[in-house]
Amino acid sequence: MKKTMIAAAVSLAAATVSAQAMARDTINIVGSSTVFPFSTAVAETFGRTTDFNTPKVESTGSGGGLKLFCAGVGVDHPDITNASRRMKSSEFDKCQEAGVKEITEVKVGFDGISIANAKTSGQYDLTLRDIFLALAKDIPDGEGGYMPNPNKTWNDVNPDYPETKIEVLGPPPTSGTRDAFAELAMEGGCKTFPEIKALKKEDKKKYKAICHGIREDGAYVEAGENDNLIVQKLAANPAALGIFGFSFLDQNSDKVQGSKIQGIEPTYDSIADGSYPVSRSLYFYVKNAHVGTIPGIEEYVEEFTSDKAWGPDGYLADKGLISLPDTDRKAVAEAASSLTPMSKPE
């Protein structure tokens, strides 16, 4: 009795495997954890409002997603990958080599990175230079060389700030948010020193090490990938600042406030018009060869690029996505619906 049950179960499993291998009727999406909340929201609405299956969305990170995406064409490979940065030219080449020739690039909007603290303490007004001076591993010593960051309190950084210990909770190096923070905020502040700016031409490697190096003496606390955790810790510790995506600031505006950067508040409007300096673009990439083979890809892209989803009043705005300007949105939507293949990125 038991034996026949086991045999039946095994043969059942074998039968379903062979059925699966032949075709796939669910869209497979991989990629960035930053785009994940938006992609899943679209996938769910798409599944609810159409006759297609709800797409499967995996959170693999931008780099991991592009690697899977560029591995080849066929039902075993994903159809769409999300990215919180543009595809690199090296990734594009890998795609081409594997036979993934035509790729449609869709820019979906912006994500702001906020530097926030608890509502119970005062709001900061930081410049990018202050952020660099507070968090960099090495800073210029004023004599042409570099020294380990001596700043202990915000007052050391800028006499306008209170005598509070520098304590910033942020994402670990594996996170895309950290990459973007280093690139936009740290490098932005770093470039304000003329000697470092000059270094960029001479020694690119050293320039990057200085501009992207974040201190490891305890002032910057790696708080894990979980942004909710950072918000909770900020509420408990009014002296600390935290770095996380704008959507978390938006959802927790009763507990934390975003610092002004270069005098600009992190709001929907300031990120959308590009005046808030620490924001990045989000993308997804479609494998054109799969359109027509896997049902629903065109319709999913259409759902994502419809105004009820990614428009300023759409449901993605509710999840924290910051829309592209109206004219860009229209152009991108047209290019996306005609599946215009992208050219090699620089």
Binding site: T16, A19, S39, E44, G47, N53, T54, K56, V57, S59
Partner: peptide
């Protein structure tokens, strides 16, 4: 992964 549909089998 984000999977809305309740799985009905091993694959």
């Amino acid at each position: 992964a984000f999977i809305v549909d309740i799985p009905g089998g091993f694959t």
